[in-house]
Computed example of a mutant assay.
Amino acid sequence: MTPTTLKRASLTEQAADAAVDQACRMLRLPTIRGQFPDMADQAAREQMSYRGFLAELLMAECDDRARRRAERRFKAAAFPRQKILRDFDFSANSNIDPAMIHTLAKCEWIKKGMPLCLIGDSGTGKSHLLIGLGTEAAMSGYRVRYTLAAKLVNELVEAADEKQLTKTISRYGRVDLLCIDELGYMELDKRGAELLFQVLTEREEKASVAIASNESFSGWTKTFTDPRLCGAIVDRLTFGGNIIETGSDSYRLAHTKSAQKQ
């Protein structure tokens, strides 16, 4: 092969690379655009077929898109910290059935729009389970949003004052799973409780709500001072759903005491 032929072949490869780059920009294929040169060289070395090479490119793009979608869903969920079910110490709390948690992690209850209640004292793993199950849902393709009960009520009150309540309730109504943590930690005034009730009503039997509370249902009258409203909220959060009681023995306290002894 003469130098002229080599130069012509090199230019042809450069033109092909430029065409692929431009096409990937137009078609919005960033992964193929970034990996094409290296993957093309590897395909040549391994004498890969055209079909095999095309399949490798498209699979790389699909995998990367799935990863980016999962990252966006996780970011949109607004979890305060990373908590995954794999890290949960089931041996530290005999009240929690691992089989039930693993079943919930399959997200069938979310698909059916069923509620979930995690009830127990502080330090018994409620928030870990709430975030962990929410993370599983986000990774499975569901739209998830995490919030503290007090923060949600404050947001609803501000939205009502600014004539944006309908828009805000609709936004919370669109997610597949709404995780409300620390429900019952503080008393809500009648207006705040009524606004929260509107969010729950918007989602009733359509989309799942998961809550974590340090109060048993009988103690919710401290949070929702109107008995009728309290009963209606409990009804919406329990009908057809799962209730997990995490008990009263604090894992954090036991862990701290054990560390001090050691």
Rank of each mutant, 00 (worst) to 15 (best):
T5Q: 05
L6C: 01
K7L: 15
R8L: 14
A9Q: 13
A15L: 06
A15G: 03
A16S: 10
A16K: 07
D17T: 03
D21M: 10
Q22H: 08
A23F: 09
C24A: 15
R25D: 02
M26S: 07
L27C: 04
D38W: 01
M39E: 12
A40Q: 09
D41H: 04
Q42C: 03
A43H: 13
A44V: 00
E46D: 11
G52Q: 04
G52S: 06
F53S: 00
F53C: 02
L54E: 05
L54Y: 05
M59H: 01
E61G: 07
C62I: 05
R65L: 13
R67V: 01
R69M: 08
E71C: 02
R72E: 14
F79W: 03
R81A: 12
R81E: 08
Q82T: 08
Q82K: 14
I84T: 14
L85N: 06
F88A: 11
S91R: 06
S91C: 06
N93I: 10
I96F: 12
D97N: 12
M100K: 07
I101H: 04
I101E: 10
H102T: 02
T103P: 00
T103C: 02
L104T: 00
L104D: 14
K106D: 14
C107N: 12
W109E: 13
K111R: 13
K111S: 14
K112L: 15
G113I: 05
M114I: 02
P115A: 14
P115S: 15
L116E: 02
C117E: 09
C117D: 01
C117F: 05
C117G: 01
K126R: 05
L130M: 13
I131E: 11
G132H: 07
G132V: 10
L133D: 03
T135R: 10
R143N: 11
Y146N: 08
L148T: 02
L152C: 03
L152T: 05
V153N: 02
N154F: 14
E155Y: 06
E155G: 11
L156A: 09
L156K: 04
L156M: 08
A159N: 04
A159M: 06
A160G: 01
K167E: 13
S170N: 12
S170C: 10
G173W: 13
R174K: 09
R174Q: 11
R174G: 00
L177I: 08
L177Q: 08
L178R: 06
L178V: 07
L178Y: 09
L178S: 14
I180T: 07
D181E: 04
L188A: 11
K190C: 05
K190S: 07
G192A: 10
G192V: 04
E194P: 00
F197E: 03
Q198A: 15
V199P: 03
L200K: 00
R203G: 07
E205N: 06
E205A: 15
S208Q: 13
S208M: 06
V209Q: 01
A210Q: 06
S213M: 10
E215C: 12
E215N: 09
E215D: 07
W220D: 06
K222A: 03
K222D: 12
F224E: 06
T225Y: 00
T225M: 05
D226M: 04
P227M: 09
C230L: 03
I233T: 01
T238P: 01
F239Y: 14
G240A: 08
T246L: 15
D249E: 15
D249L: 11
S250V: 04
S250F: 10
R252M: 08
R252T: 11
L253T: 04
A254T: 07
S258Q: 09
A259Y: 09
Q260P: 00
Q260I: 15
Q260L: 15
